[in-house]
């Protein structure tokens, strides 16, 4: 029997009424004060998807696509205008407090920690808020301290922590009550490469070991590739793609990168669909348009010119794949 979905959204709609002051002089200002002019901005437009328990899903889209709004609706912070939303069988807008015990949220650009106090104080407060018994709280905190390497920073005021340390504390804080789902909104924003790697590893491990469902928004494809197995792409509040990352690559992969280390100092490969990206002594980097040429053809052509010492074939970066998807959506929306 299939487990009930952890998250199920059907035809979710959410719009905001944004004030747009009328331009002009005194009269316009008076009008803006007494009768403000508002514009309706559709953030989410008939969005539907479901997530199984334990899945790690990346939720991707350009700025303003509706990702954060969707997460806030799922967490019960915002009320949907239309559509149905169920998280762990609960209706977030109506059962927010009940749901809060079972989900965790991390908003990368916001903080749930008290800036002037050490993380230990926030953890103690959250223990009360989430009604965690004393011994259980100590056990969870010890486990998270060990897993997230928080020991040396637990008693340091948050304002003295680095961004990476703070983010580890934020994620630990959101996991303290052992939630079944974690909603993460850009958890690695602003972090350096090594801090990002640590956060990704921690998230992956927490989900894999404890079966925590992850829904993660990020503009960093490294987060998506290293943490998630499935990607949902939205654009202007609408679903563009929902499926495994590998399928997304296959569907939108139009090029491959081929690097050839040859015995000959230079290779002259002038084939249709092949572009030389860079060429150094004994090393040539090529981009192969797969609809025109195959990688095998290019390798054959290189071997015909010189013995080959080594070669590497890479997919186009996921960034490029997602950009292609956005571009297609933009083209589609401008046509319609």
């Amino acid at each position: 029997m299939r487990a009930a979905p952890a998250v199920e959204i059907t035809d979710l709609c959410k719009a905001f009424h944004v004030r747009r002051p009328r331009p002009g002089g005194f009269v316009a200002r008076v009008q803006n004060f007494f009768r403000p002019h508002t514009q309706t901005v559709t953030a989410v437009d008939r969005l539907s998807f479901s997530i199984a328990p334990g899945e790690r899903v990346a939720f991707v889209g350009p700025n303003g696509a509706g990702k954060s709004t969707t997460l806030k609706v799922l967490a019960g912070i915002l009320q949907p205008d239309a559509g149905s939303v169920r998280v762990l069988g609960l209706e977030p807008a109506r059962q927010r407090r009940e749901l809060a015990f079972r989900v965790g949220t991390v908003f990368g650009q916001r903080s749930q920690l008290w800036y002037q106090l050490p993380p230990r104080d926030t953890f103690a407060l959250l223990g009360r808020v989430y009604e965690i018994a004393g011994t259980e709280h100590r056990r969870r905190l010890d486990a998270l301290t060990a897993a997230f390497g928080l020991g040396p920073i637990l008693d340091t005021p948050v304002r003295q922590l680095s961004l990476g340390e703070r983010m580890r504390c934020e994620i630990a804080a959101s996991l303290l009550h052992a939630p079944r789902i974690l909603f993460l909104d850009e958890p690695t924003i602003g972090l350096d490469v090594s801090a990002k790697a640590v956060i990704r590893e921690l998230l992956h491990t927490e989900s894999a070991q404890n079966g925590v469902t992850l829904l993660l928004t990020s503009h960093d494809t490294g987060d998506i590739e290293r943490v998630c197995e499935r990607v949902i792409v939205i654009h202007r509040g609408r679903l563009l793609w929902d499926g495994p990352i590998a399928h997304l690559r296959r569907r939108y992969l139009t090029t491959k990168r081929l690097t050839v280390w040859s015995e000959a100092e230079r290779l002259e490969l002038q084939l249709p669909g092949v572009r030389v990206v860079s060429s150094d002594a004994f090393r040539t980097e090529l981009e192969v348009a797969l609809d025109v040429a195959s990688v095998g053809q290019v390798i054959d052509a290189a071997l015909a010119q010189s013995p080959v010492r080594d070669l590497a074939v890479e997919d186009a970066p996921l960034d490029a794949v997602i950009r292609a998807l956005y571009a297609e959506a933009e083209a589609g929306s401008s046509e319609s």
């Binding site: 009940e98 015990f101 908003f107 916001r110 009604e131």
Partner: peptide, 8 residues
């Protein structure tokens, strides 16, 4: 947003 998501 961080505070609104709590069971309090």
């Amino acid at each position: 947003v961080c505070r609104l998501g709590r069971p309090v």
